[in-house]
């Protein structure tokens, strides 16, 4: 994502027109970026600053905001609900990411050996295209303890009723399962695309050297796939930290707060409990956390280096 230094148009054929072209270029450049610049300033830059300002106020939107200094942040430090939300969110990420990435890797590797079929790839991507609202509703129904099909199947096999989303211990794993279903195909295709870009000659060379398949996987595939894996890991971790839709539709933070993730807590504080200032303060903390996590992750996975 680094900014590439652009090459200067080699237009200046006649020295005289150069300056005129330069001015026109500047003018047109500014005109062309103007709408996007307005959009950026109005809906990214100013809100970001405004968010910081709001986070230092006590504001219910109905009455004028009161400046409270660091009070929101101080409150946050000793708000058990915030810390629990943080823990719940981290728990979700830990449940979701490893399983999803490994499963996606397996699917991608299987596909690269078996088929490039457009149909199969299309089927794998379908859940990802669906609104999370639809996915949440659908799984809420599939997982219903009394009349859902999953429990009907479990009971038919002689198992007990599993109240997936209604028991505190099961709710988060169930949410993770739903999101893995939604995103694993997409992740697999990302990795699959990465696999396709590895030239076959690399494997041939390795196999001539007598490498086993497992060795090839660890010594050839994984290192060459590193950029894709880093991309997948960073984006899916950032995405998981921001889970909202699925929880809004299925558990609404319950049972017994078991799925009250940060995003839900922010939404609840802002839009049902009239605490805009506090909600914004939490979102700022989440932002810092995300920057930290993604930087740590890139460092950890040595994204910059190339092994081969």
């Amino acid at each position: 994502m680094s900014v590439q230094s652009s090459s200067i148009p080699k237009l200046a054929l006649q020295a005289g027109s150069t300056r005129r072209w330069r001015t026109r270029e500047t003018v047109w450049g500014l005109i062309l970026i103007l709408p996007s610049l307005i959009g950026f300033i109005a809906f990214y830059a100013v809100p970001a600053i405004r968010g910081v300002v709001i986070s230092f106020t006590d504001w219910d939107l109905l009455t004028p905001a009161k400046a409270v200094g660091l009070a929101n942040y101080m409150h946050l430090l000793k708000d058990p609900n915030f810390w629990r939300a943080l823990k719940v969110t981290a728990y979700y990420v830990l449940l979701n990411i490893p399983l999803q990435t490994i499963l996606a890797m397996v699917i991608a590797v299987m596909m690269s050996r078996l088929t490039k079929s457009l149909v199969i790839r299309s089927i794998l991507i379908i859940p990802w295209l669906m609104p999370s609202v639809v996915v949440g509703l659908l799984w809420l129904w599939l997982m219903d303890p009394n009349i859902g099909i999953l429990n009907a199947a479990i009971r038919a096999l002689g198992g007990p009723t599993v109240p997936f989303l209604n028991l505190p211990d099961l709710a988060m794993p169930s949410i993770a399962l739903i999101n893995i279903w939604q995103y694993v195909g997409y992740t697999a295709l990302l990795i699959f695309a990465g696999l396709q870009s590895i030239p076959g000659s690399v494997y041939e060379a390795a196999s001539i050297d007598g490498a086993s398949e497992l060795q090839m996987f660890w010594k050839v595939t994984v290192p060459l796939l590193r950029p894709v894996l880093v991309f997948v890991a960073v984006t899916s971790v950032i995405g998981s930290f921001q889970i909202f839709d699925t929880i809004a539709i299925t558990t609404k933070g319950g049972p017994v707060n078991a799925t009250k993730v940060l995003n839900w807590y922010i939404y609840e504080q802002a839009f049902t409990r009239f605490n805009m200032g506090y909600a914004t303060a939490i979102s700022m903390v989440l932002f810092l956390l995300l920057i930290f996590v993604s930087m740590a992750q890139m460092r950890l996975m040595r994204a910059g280096e190339s092994d081969v």
Partner: peptide, 19 residues
């Protein structure tokens, strides 16, 4: 009827379903 079973269905629906 345990809480985890009744919450997803609602009490009256569970009763109407003969649970």
């Amino acid at each position: 009827m345990p809480l985890e079973l009744v919450t997803s269905l609602g009490g009256s629906a569970a009763f109407n379903a003969g649970k």
